[in-house]
Design a protein around this nucleic acid. Structure first.
Lengths: 187, 187, 187, 187
DNA sequence: TATGAATGAGAATTCATTCAT
DNA sequence: TATGAATGAATTCTCATTCAT
């Protein structure tokens, strides 16, 4: 693996475990088996490492939404697919999510990144729900605040996944059922 | 106000705004109008300040649950009351929640505190839902994972409240409706 | 002596000997018998130390000019007094001058400080020469460029004093004579 | 141009603009369009680059003195020629002079180089003035200190040229006149 | 000759904590 | 209780120099 990628990899796991401030360049270099100066050949400063991690997550989410969009067909399965997809996306990117969730209050790049994800998520949900409502596969609800509710639910699910990892097992399918019961008529 | 309380107060607002690491003892002392040494008359170290803030939040939540418990009567209104109550509790303690949410990944006392709140919340929801189910006012659902789903939803709502304050207005009632539709039969 | 003054004192001698960049905060602290952190209780950063030294030199020069102005009487002695005064001022503030001369190309505060001194010196010479010419005690010369010549001469004298200290002894009086011969008629 | 010369050229302009310490090998390599390692193919270390620049200035000055010496004829024009020549030499080698003037307090090679130039200048002036005095074209003065005064004047003129470039225009001829008035009898 | 990634010693600066008054 | 000067370990970042290719 290229040195730059090794730095990113180690940084990802360290920041997700002990936070941005707890991750010192000295410790990062040591764990990556390189000298401290080498970090600065690959990144302008420590924040740039965080930035790149966040950017990559942003890109991965964009790509994920792209996939969902292209697969969406409006039939009964859509909502499940969207929710399951998001829950899965969260599982696949736990470390990155941990980083965003734990740092976005403190570091402006993190905040921007998180806000961008949230807004795109909200927009996507609004879009899907409008479609589904027009097709009659979900109840008539106030789209915007309901989309926000879904965003909140998914944010919370991620939080629990990240910080209470023991409860994973039986939780996701029920969350999806919970949403289905609320949105799909005649269940 | 006693010096100790002033320190706590300033610390609360500073930590919630700029985080635990961003809050230096020097700045804290300056804003509190005391000398740096004085902080250490009242707290063993910086972490002890955070600890006390978290403990107070913990206590406030215990008290809040107590109130909910004593008011609970199992009739149709219960779920709304619980949810509204929690949403309100979040609004009333925004600064503290911001502190927990932004620091619990990084500092073990914060993590413990958060875990304790989550567990009690989960336990409380389980309790309430079991009761309500026995009384027939909510559908038959798998209690444990559904309680987790509710915890997740509330966690997410808090997050949005804390970090996306613009969306507050129309959001809470719809979230409650969302849950009601999912849980209350024949709506 | 107060800690701040001790820092300034040691800094003055170190910077004049080994330059601004050569003077590390670590060495400065060691020689001042304090810890490195203490420096930053008294100065915002390293440059602030240099700034203060320069400011003090600036003030001393202002005061010096004030003295010269109040003592000036326009008789034959004036030119000698001004030149001798400046030469003496240079001797009395060798360390500071060494600092300005060696750093003013590189550090903007130093440059500003030096420019300010040069401009005031030039202005003062212009003033004195105009007076003296009106009184007929010096020849009719083009005042402005001649004042610049005097500034240059004094700058050069300082340089030699600073960097070729062995030649001091017999040099100053002759420099004054040199100027007298050029400016005073019928010598 | 050979790589080595390119390095020297870029180094000259960079050091004269931002100083020796400000000129990093990384920036130097970048501006020269070569890799950092290449610098060390041509120079043992960073100081060696400075050394060579100084040596070249030294050589240029030797050559310049040679020219002056061979052109000297002792008649009335000599003093003007020497002074004008030096002023011109300064103008022609501004960047190098800036380097010496700004670094000779800090780096021993620079100091040596400067001392050598000053001493040769002093020696040359002594020589010329002795000759001229014997021929009766200048007044009877104490040669050694007067030569030092001339050195000082020229040093100062260079300083002003280098650091107060706006005043150039009308200054040089007057400086020469200033010296003539002081040294040439019956003016 | 040339490269450029890697080095590591050292620089400035920060900050929680201590302690004599 | 309160002060505030002093501490010193830790942190981020720089940069001349090396060396395998």
């Amino acid at each position: 693996m290229k040195t730059k990628d090794r730095i990113l990899d180690i940084a990802r796991s360290m920041i997700s475990e002990i936070g941005y401030h707890g991750t010192t360049t000295a410790a990062l270099a040591k764990r990556a088996g390189i000298s401290e100066g080498t970090i600065y050949r690959h990144f302008e400063n420590k924040e740039a490492i965080l930035l790149q991690i966040l950017q990559e997550l942003d890109d991965k989410y964009s790509e994920f939404l792209q996939t969902l969009r292209s697969a969406r067909d409006g039939d009964h399965g859509t909502i499940e697919r969207i929710l399951h997809g998001h829950v899965r996306f969260a599982s696949d990117n736990l470390a990155d999510l941990k980083i965003v969730l734990s740092s976005y209050a403190l570091l402006s790049p993190s905040k921007q990144s998180m806000t961008s994800v949230i807004e795109r998520m909200h927009e996507f949900f609004t879009e899907c729900m409008t479609r589904s409502m027009n097709m009659g596969v979900i109840r008539e609800v106030d789209v915007d605040p309901t989309a926000k509710t879904l965003v909140a639910l998914l944010l919370g699910v991620m939080q629990l996944k990240v910080y209470w990892p023991d409860m994973d097992s039986d939780f996701d399918p029920e969350a999806v059922q919970f949403v289905r019961r609320s949105l799909v008529p005649n269940l």
